[in-house]
């Protein structure tokens, strides 16, 4: 009954949403959002596990990744899940936002969810980018150089922003440390907060509709 839904917690609301019947004509579309949620769970878990073996310092970083892949039991699996999960997340998050956009479902009290969705996609891109840097191999340094020169070309704030991201005048230890902090702590917690807010808005909407 509807009387209890207003006070229920996030987990209960989530369980309710999982059990709720889906309109048959929109069955397939629901997969995108749920896939994003499941992938975020996978990425959080595997990311925490990877941090056990990863060393965020030039000279040690790429060696620790190699060590993880070759010496650590199932290291290849955990890293593979994390890598491919992040790629899939970008795909599903884009499809989800496209669906919302094309169906006009950003209107009518859903504006909050739409804004949060866009911010979450941007955060995912930021996480994918910083994650790519952490391997600290030739690919990473090329990516960092390209991204930083792109940032630098932004009018007025560009140079300061690039300097801030680089952590100094040149790409080096500070850059990697910053990328690591952003990837492992700052951006994930930000994403977690936005996601919780997003789910809370959805649960509240559902509760109001049922009441």
């Amino acid at each position: 009954m509807s009387g209890t839904t207003r006070e229920e917690g996030l987990l209960r609301a989530l369980g309710r949403a999982l059990r709720a019947p889906v309109p048959p004509e929109r069955k397939g579309w629901f997969a995108f959002g749920w896939s994003c949620l499941a992938l975020l769970l996978v990425l959080g878990t595997t990311g925490a596990l990877l941090s056990i073996y990863y060393l965020p310092a030039p000279g040690a970083a790429s060696e620790s990744v190699r060590f993880l892949m070759r010496e650590v039991a199932w290291g290849w699996l955990v890293r593979g899940l994390h890598r491919w999960g992040s790629t899939l997340l970008l795909v599903f998050a884009t499809l989800q936002l496209l669906r919302v956009f094309l169906a006009g479902r950003y209107r009518g009290g859903r504006a909050g969810n739409w804004v949060l969705g866009v911010l979450l996609l941007l955060l995912s891109v930021g996480l994918a980018f910083t994650g790519e840097l952490l391997a600290w191999d030739a690919r990473s340094s090329a990516l960092a150089a390209a991204a930083l020169s792109g940032t630098e070309s932004i009018p007025i704030v560009g140079p300061a922003l690039a300097h801030w991201m680089r952590g100094g005048a040149e790409i080096g230890t500070a850059t990697l440390a910053r990328a690591h902090a952003a990837h492992a702590l700052i951006l994930p917690w930000l994403a977690f907060l936005l996601l919780a807010l997003n789910l809370w808005l959805l649960a509240r909407r559902r509760a109001r509709r049922e009441a």
Binding site: L49, I52, L55, S64, F67, V72, A73, L77, V78
Partner: peptide
């Protein structure tokens, strides 16, 4: 696999 992953590898040199 995840429990195996936590097991310290035989070669711990890094």
């Amino acid at each position: 696999p995840l429990v195996g992953f936590l097991e310290p590898p035989p070669r711990t040199i890094l």
